[in-house]
Design a protein around this nucleic acid. Structure first.
Length: 188
DNA sequence: CATGGGATTGACT
DNA sequence: GTCAATCCCATGC
């Protein structure tokens, strides 16, 4: 998808990414869960302003923002809105599509629904690490492309974001209705 | 310069 | 349900 897709209000981008396909290193999956973050609200890393950590968030739209969470996991975001605005969509869960054997090998779990059902899980399954930060999502290695023509338009459910302590009232989370591949946090 | 907390996960009770 | 792992960096003294 080109940069104009991402150069829109981040909440719209988060909604429209449901059903799109993330690909990396021979693996791919359909996005079934996203969350929007914007520098105007305190749950967003960019809320504190432009720093070394958040430089990618304030950069041009259509790039990957990959950061370390809890000192352990890598989380994948798609930078949105115009350059100079700190906003991104967190990719929280995928339905595995291609390269499923490789995902099993990387994740070390048996159930397919455990492969990509969380933001830290899907980066591990797809082999996405912190060095992808700043990468162009239209050229790779990590890419996001439109919903495959064979797939129906998804029914989308909107709710509050998960696992945050600030601005919890905002309904900036989007899920594909009925998907079996949502994050485990979904069930809290 | 020291400290605390976080957009999570998985192991254990 | 509870909790440790593990590290970057924003914040505050």
């Amino acid at each position: 998808m080109n940069a104009s897709f991402y150069e829109r209000p981040v909440v719209e981008v988060a909604r429209d990414l449901i059903g799109c396909v993330v690909s990396s290193c021979g693996c791919s999956g359909v996005i079934v869960e996203t969350e929007a973050y914007h520098d105007s609200e305190p749950a967003c890393h960019a809320y504190a302003g432009l720093t070394a950590r958040t430089a990618t968030l304030f950069g041009p739209p259509g790039r990957a923002y990959v950061y370390r969470s809890y000192g352990v996991h890598a989380l994948l975001n798609a930078v949105s809105e115009r350059e100079g605005v700190g906003a991104a969509v967190l990719i929280r869960a995928l339905e595995p599509l291609d390269g499923i054997e490789l995902m099993h090998a990387r994740r070390g779990v048996s159930r397919e629904r455990d492969l990509c059902s969380g933001p830290g899980k899907l980066t591990q399954a797809l082999g996405i690490w912190l060095d992808e930060d700043g990468g162009d999502l239209s050229s790779g290695p990590v890419t996001i492309s439109h919903r495959p023509a064979a797939r129906l338009e998804p029914e989308i459910v909107r709710s509050r974001r998960i696992g945050i302590t600030k601005a919890v009232e905002l309904e900036w989370r989007f899920c594909m209705h009925g998907s079996r591949h949502l994050s485990s946090s979904e069930r809290r």
